[in-house]
Write a protein that binds this DNA or RNA. Structure first.
Length: 876
RNA sequence: GGGCGCUUAGCUCAGUUGGUUAGAGCAUCUCUUUUACAAGGAGAGGGUCGGGGGUUCGAAUCCCUCAGCGCCCACCA
């Protein structure tokens, strides 16, 4: 006798306990099931992370904290559903799932929204006003001039507004069915994240991984801030080559350069040609004179000069582009800066511009924008005869800050950096090594990581000249002559964190000493958003204040994220973890594709092709939306498709109906073991689906689970159920085999679908099972088949029977008659083996096909042939 | 210029170590309503798997090559 198994226990429970008898609705419906189950899950704590779970029994997820400054986008619905499916799988497998949510409310998008919403602007020099209230609340008049407020007051407003937005996001994520443990919520601007971020920064500082440097930096003139390499994007812009003459020798000789930035002639510090370029060999080491400004500049050779570009000799300015910065650094050139941080030409000319004519020329451009200065300079060059050809229009790629509107300039400023291997080959190698320690899903995404790390050309610039971010937690002494001492910053003790050096005072000082000689001054900058979000595992896992928790969840099991931020979020998280913990931050990186519009364009508000998630939830149901999301293979860009949602809704409806059917059958003896060959074969096929689904989920492939389970499910409904339903109505031993098989299959199917369609599966599960389906157990082959006598040729058996059934159906369709039409005579040609299969479930075939006489003929071809004589159709 | 991905039915896509006749959904057409389901069911038509070459008994699948689409990165005097 087989030992009692779990379902026998469960059946017994249901029968013995009146509360657990089947409660199947007369008319099952998907309407409003979401709200009911969301409330139920909250109540019984289905999604709660168990802090007492042991380390190897925890599955931890480094959830991407969405930016909450806008509204929830279908792209987010798409990718968050993928993660949720995986989380639900592991929860059913018995893991305690650490699945937090964070709100990324720190940074520029929030700042802009707050400025517009309240009619304020942040001015760090204004003092904190504890009684401040904003002039407007979302109804700022057009001509209103922003009120300057202190940074702490501004941050209060940011927190207030993001709080409203976050409530809306939470509601939508719940509606989608994300099984997040909301008690683990964090925000990137909250005290805890600020404390973590500042603490991590100070540790980087103490180990020399963070350092300040006065250096040329890419600068957005509108936002007035430095930006990092990872935040750049190229945009195609019109430009023009200008052919300009530089005189040398006694003034009769000249050399022509071509430039797209003639306005920078005043900041030219050298010319550069390639060492192999014969045309300029004689010039190397000599000097030439800049047109208009009469500055003697040297001519150097450098490998980066391109012989075939322009005239082959280039003007080096401080700074026109990043190549200029390289030349400036490697050739030890002086800085002759003419562009200010506001994007205008400095009013004061560099001291080398000192002839009367040069000073006059400079006066023409001083104070002008770069664009205006270009027009004026070209005019002056034309007038002086130094412009040797009319400008030739071209289009070229220009670097922009990804959120900016004007091309980036390069200005020299004091900034904070974190080492990332961009200037250190050995360190770069160790980050490549970390990348290879991860399992990537899909695996080819690792190339993008390697590609990025190998292409780094500088350290990670983390300081931003903005306000709504985590402040650099440092102050500087001001010496007796009023100069800040940047070399030995005043560092706050950990227990004071988080601090805002613009309003907090370093230990040993008082507020009145701020900004005066002998006193102190706070670092004015905040950290880049990524400097904080690179610490999401540490923030969510409470690295700084809960060692016990952190040691259980870190390194995390999984980082889900979009592939376009491999270079930012993924890489920077690895950098921080490598320095702080000497390990990768997670074992698996799951990269989601993009959601595209139905025409395969990237969706965006400006194109007006954005759909609101809540309308889709209302129209199709959350499960149907999730069906669409999880039918996309991992990492593959996928078109938005309401058709897919309709299919998903159909599937959910079918699950309701088939569950109603199976649970409506009378259970003769719950201890029956399925014994009829067709019943056993069906369960064996299902066991195969269980195996494949389990393996697929273990490798994060939710889409394969859906595909496999769904294919089986429709076959189960259309063929198996049709075959056995008559027998299942009987009250015999053979009937009990069918009913038990149907119950086992239903239970298994409901659980296979549960991570993907959490609402409808919970609904149908609740009709006959006492606990939440989402607490498992996940089905296994052993539990499904353990007590049964297994068939050797289950698939051959099923296909032989299926083929006969299918051919009977076809003849009825071709006879243009109802499937109920009786078959007077059926003649089957098949191999002996196939005929054996067929006869072993002949009663089911008779019932399903309405068969009369059946004649079986053995032949030696593999293909089954069937001759059907239909009864005269009484109705026609 | 470097790297990656994609190209299969009218449309959207599966096709997992190469194996009978290449699949699904949607769309189209035909048939079909009282015992789970008509927001259902049963069927049919529709593809020389982007082009070419190669390996193999056998290729949508492996290799080479060409083309188109998309993405990432670099260069941008």
């Amino acid at each position: 006798m087989p030992s009692p198994t779990w379902w026998q226990y469960r059946y017994t429970t249901m029968i013995d306990t009146p509360n657990h008898t089947y409660v199947v609705p007369e008319k099952p419906t998907l309407d409003k099931i979401e709200a009911r189950w969301i409330a139920n899950w909250d109540q019984i704590g289905v999604n709660a992370f168990d802090r007492n779970a042991t380390r190897d029994n925890i599955f931890s997820i480094d959830t991407p904290p969405p930016s909450v400054s806008g509204s929830l986008h279908m792209g987010q619905v798409f990718s968050y559903t993928h993660t949720d499916a995986v989380a639900r799988f592991w929860r059913m497998r018995g893991k305690s799932v650490f699945y937090p949510m964070g709100w990324d409310d720190n940074g520029l998008p929030t700042e802009r929204r707050v400025q517009n919403y309240f009619g304020v602007s942040c001015d760090p020099t204004v003092l904190f006003d504890p009684d401040f209230s904003p002039p407007f609340n979302g109804d700022v008049p057009k001509n209103h001039r922003a009120v300057a407020i202190s940074r702490p007051n501004f941050i209060q407003l940011c927190e207030q507004l993001t709080h409203q937005d976050e409530k809306i996001f939470e509601g939508l994520f719940r509606r989608l069915g994300l099984s997040v443990d909301w008690s683990l919520l964090y925000t990137t601007i909250g005290d805890h994240a600020r404390r973590t971020s500042q603490h991590a920064f100070l540790k980087n500082l103490s180990r020399g991984e963070a350092y300040p440097q006065e250096a040329p930096t890419l600068w957005d003139v509108d936002f007035g801030t430095a930006v990092a390499q990872a935040e750049l994007e190229d945009r195609e812009r019109p430009g023009a080559y200008h052919s300009i003459a530089f005189a040398h020798g006694d003034g009769n000789d000249e050399v022509l350069i071509e430039t797209t930035r003639p306005e920078l002639v005043a900041s030219c510090v050298a010319l550069v040609a390639h060492p192999d370029d014969a045309r300029y060999v004689s010039l190397i080491g000599r000097t030439v004179r800049t047109p208009l400004f009469d500055v003697e500049v040297p001519v150097y050779s450098h490998e980066l000069a391109q012989i075939d570009k322009g005239t082959g000799i280039a003007m080096v300015c401080t700074f026109g582009d990043l190549t200029d910065v390289i030349w400036w650094r490697e050739l030890n050139l002086p800085a002759r800066v003419i562009i200010g941080r506001d994007g205008r030409i400095l009013t004061e000319a560099p001291e080398e511009i000192n002839t009367e004519r040069a000073r006059a020329a400079y006066a023409q451009i001083a104070g002008k924008t770069v664009k205006q200065a270009q027009t004026i300079t070209v005019e002056m060059l034309r007038a002086s005869g130094d412009l040797r050809a009319e400008p030739r229009a071209i289009t070229h790629q220009v670097k922009f800050y990804e959120r900016g509107d004007r091309p980036l300039e390069i200005v020299s400023s004091r900034q904070w950096y974190i080492r990332n291997g961009g200037r250190d080959a050995a360190l770069r190698q160790s980050f490549l090594q970390r990348g290879s320690e991860l399992t990537w899903h899909p695996d080819f995404m690792e190339h993008r990581y390697d590609n990025w790390v190998e292409g780094l050309n500088g350290d990670w610039l983390i300081s931003r000249q903005r306000f709504f971010g985590v402040p650099i937690p440092l102050w500087y002494r001001i010496n007796e002559s009023g100069e800040p001492d940047y070399d030995t910053p005043l560092v706050p003790p950990n227990e004071r964190l988080p601090i805002d050096p613009s309003s907090d005072v370093p230990t040993g000082f008082v507020e009145s000493q701020r900004g005066i000689a002998g006193g102190f001054i706070g670092d004015p900058d905040v950290m880049d958003t990524w400097a904080t979000s690179s610490l999401t595992p540490q923030i969510a896992g409470h690295w700084i204040d809960d060692d016990e928790l952190f040691s259980r969840v870190f390194p995390m099991e999984m980082r889900p994220q979009a592939h376009e931020i491999i270079r930012t979020w993924l890489f920077s998280t690895i950098v921080r973890s490598h320095f702080e913990h000497g390990t990768v931050p997670w074992h698996n990186a799951a990269l989601s594709g993009w959601m595209l519009d139905p025409n395969h364009k990237k969706m965006s508000k400006s194109k007006g092709n954005v759909v609101s998630p809540s309308e889709l939830f209302d129209q199709y149901g959350s499960d149907a939306v999730r069906y669409w999301a999880t039918s996309a293979r991992p990492g593959v860009d996928t078109a938005f498709s309401e058709d897919q949602m309709k299919v998903g809704r159909k599937l959910a409806t079918k699950l309701l109906n088939v569950s109603k059917f199976v649970l409506g059958l009378e259970v003769i003896d719950p201890r029956t073991t399925p014994s009829e060959p067709i019943d056993v074969a069906m369960l064996q096929r299902l066991a195969q689906v269980v195996d494949e689904s389990t393996e697929a989920f273990e490798s994060f492939d939710y889409a394969r689970v859906l595909e496999r389970t769904e294919t089986f499910f429709w076959w189960f409904c259309d063929d198996y159920v049709e075959l056995v339903k008559t027998r299942a109505y009987e009250k015999t031993t053979r009937s009990a085999s069918a009913v038990t098989a149907l119950h086992r299959a239903l239970s298994t199917l409901q659980r296979l679908f549960a991570p993907l369609l959490p609402f409808v599966t919970e609904e149908v599960w609740s009709w006959w099972q006492p606990d939440s389906i989402h607490l498992g157990p996940w089905p296994t082959r052993d539990k499904l088949l353990g007590d049964m006598v297994i068939l050797d040729s289950d698939e051959e058996f099923l296909s032989a029977v299926g083929e006969v059934l299918s051919q009977i159906r076809r003849s009825k369709t071709e006879g243009k008659t109802s499937q109920r039409t009786a078959v007077e005579h059926l003649k089957i040609f098949a191999t002996t083996a196939q005929l054996n299969f067929i006869s072993s479930c002949m009663d089911d075939l008779r019932n399903a096909g309405g068969l009369g006489d059946v004649e079986m003929v053995a032949h030696d071809q593999n293909a089954i042939a069937v001759q059907v004589r239909l009864a005269p159709n009484s109705r026609s």
